[in-house]
Simulated scan of single mutants.
Amino acid sequence: MNTVYTSETGVRPWESIYPSHDAGFVTVTLINHDFLSVWESWCDLMEPLSEEWPIKRKWYSAMTSGFCSNAQEYLFKKNTAKTLQEGDMCKKNEKSNIYSTITKLPKSPRKIESFNFEASHDTILVMQRTETKIEELWSEMTSFETQISPEKLSSFLVQQGNILLCRFYESETHAAAQFIYQNRHENTVILESVSNLFKKINTEDVHHYINNTNIL
């Protein structure tokens, strides 16, 4: 089945039961019945948009609880260091004792490995018009270490005006790719591009689409 999309005001993480309705933000969601189909649609959309948002980084919280021993923490740091490339960063938040990692991704969406975002509810794809220092970005994103909530996403976007956030969701019945951004004139190109590629459905019709109970 073809990918469809919804567009709503506010910050509306797919799994959140308490979304934000703030009109200063927009959430666009691509929906299909499996992750690879959504990923292909995401790539189709991001190819032209990559000229606007060329900088792509993956953020994730590497450890959400304390280590059992110093040896375990040492091995974690050693093994993580082996996976990091130039421009990547993994650092411990001394206040929370949680490690989070930022890795640089290719500009071209088709060069990004899809497995980076499969079953990645706790991962954020950050896309920027201009590159900020990774240390500054890491510091701002420590707020997501324990929870990625609408309130935290809103606060982060207010501080980072040139950023487009993407998140992916996957279940047995469907998959979704979400774009969350500030409702500003320079960002209208996102919705224009989405509408040219995919069919829009109303939010109340999403369950029909997922369950194949209605022909859209």
Results as ranks from 00 to 15, higher is better:
residue 155 S to E: 13
residue 10 G to T: 01
residue 23 A to Y: 08
residue 45 L to G: 00
residue 14 W to L: 04
residue 90 C to I: 04
residue 29 T to A: 03
residue 112 I to Y: 01
residue 209 Y to R: 03
residue 148 I to F: 03
residue 178 Q to P: 01
residue 91 K to N: 10
residue 39 W to G: 01
residue 149 S to W: 07
residue 215 I to K: 12
residue 152 K to E: 14
residue 206 V to G: 02
residue 209 Y to D: 00
residue 97 N to K: 14
residue 74 Y to R: 12
residue 9 T to I: 09
residue 115 F to P: 02
residue 128 Q to M: 13
residue 74 Y to I: 03
residue 157 L to P: 05
residue 112 I to C: 05
residue 93 N to K: 10
residue 109 P to D: 10
residue 188 T to L: 11
residue 204 E to Q: 12
residue 192 E to G: 06
residue 207 H to E: 14
residue 149 S to N: 06
residue 157 L to K: 07
residue 124 I to E: 04
residue 154 S to F: 00
residue 118 E to N: 09
residue 70 N to M: 12
residue 167 R to C: 02
residue 74 Y to Q: 10
residue 115 F to N: 14
residue 140 E to Y: 04
residue 23 A to G: 08
residue 157 L to A: 08
residue 213 T to Q: 09
residue 203 T to P: 02
residue 26 V to I: 15
residue 52 E to P: 02
residue 30 L to K: 03
residue 4 V to L: 10
residue 112 I to M: 08
residue 126 V to M: 07
residue 76 F to P: 05
residue 80 T to P: 00
residue 215 I to M: 11
residue 133 K to T: 10
residue 150 P to A: 03
residue 196 N to L: 13
residue 113 E to C: 07
residue 39 W to S: 00
residue 3 T to C: 11
residue 180 I to G: 00
residue 116 N to Q: 13
residue 212 N to D: 09
residue 191 L to G: 03
residue 135 E to G: 05
residue 121 H to F: 15
residue 208 H to C: 06
residue 91 K to V: 08
residue 91 K to A: 15
residue 176 A to W: 00
residue 211 N to A: 12
residue 199 K to R: 10
residue 196 N to E: 15
residue 206 V to K: 07
residue 26 V to L: 07
residue 37 S to E: 14
residue 103 T to S: 07
residue 81 A to E: 14
residue 22 D to T: 02
residue 169 Y to H: 10
residue 212 N to E: 12
residue 34 D to M: 05
residue 150 P to H: 06
residue 25 F to R: 06
residue 10 G to A: 00
residue 125 L to C: 03
residue 140 E to Q: 08
residue 189 V to I: 07
residue 134 I to A: 02
residue 58 K to T: 00
residue 215 I to H: 11
residue 167 R to V: 00
residue 204 E to I: 07
residue 112 I to A: 00
residue 197 L to I: 05
residue 43 C to M: 10
residue 181 Y to D: 03
residue 91 K to F: 09
residue 131 E to F: 02
residue 81 A to S: 14
residue 39 W to D: 01
residue 202 N to T: 11
residue 88 D to N: 14
residue 187 N to P: 06
residue 46 M to G: 05
residue 197 L to Q: 15
residue 30 L to N: 01
residue 1 M to N: 12
residue 94 E to L: 15
residue 158 V to F: 04
residue 9 T to E: 09
residue 11 V to Y: 04
residue 24 G to K: 11
residue 67 F to L: 09
residue 198 F to M: 11
residue 19 P to D: 04
residue 7 S to K: 14
residue 19 P to C: 08
residue 67 F to A: 08
residue 141 M to V: 01
residue 102 I to Y: 04
residue 144 F to L: 14
residue 92 K to I: 08
residue 91 K to H: 12
residue 180 I to V: 14
residue 26 V to Y: 00
residue 85 Q to S: 14
residue 9 T to H: 10
residue 190 I to Y: 04
residue 1 M to E: 13
residue 198 F to P: 09
residue 134 I to T: 08
residue 156 F to C: 10
residue 72 Q to E: 11
residue 156 F to S: 05
residue 45 L to Q: 02
residue 21 H to F: 11
residue 203 T to D: 12
residue 155 S to F: 05
residue 69 S to C: 15
residue 216 L to I: 13
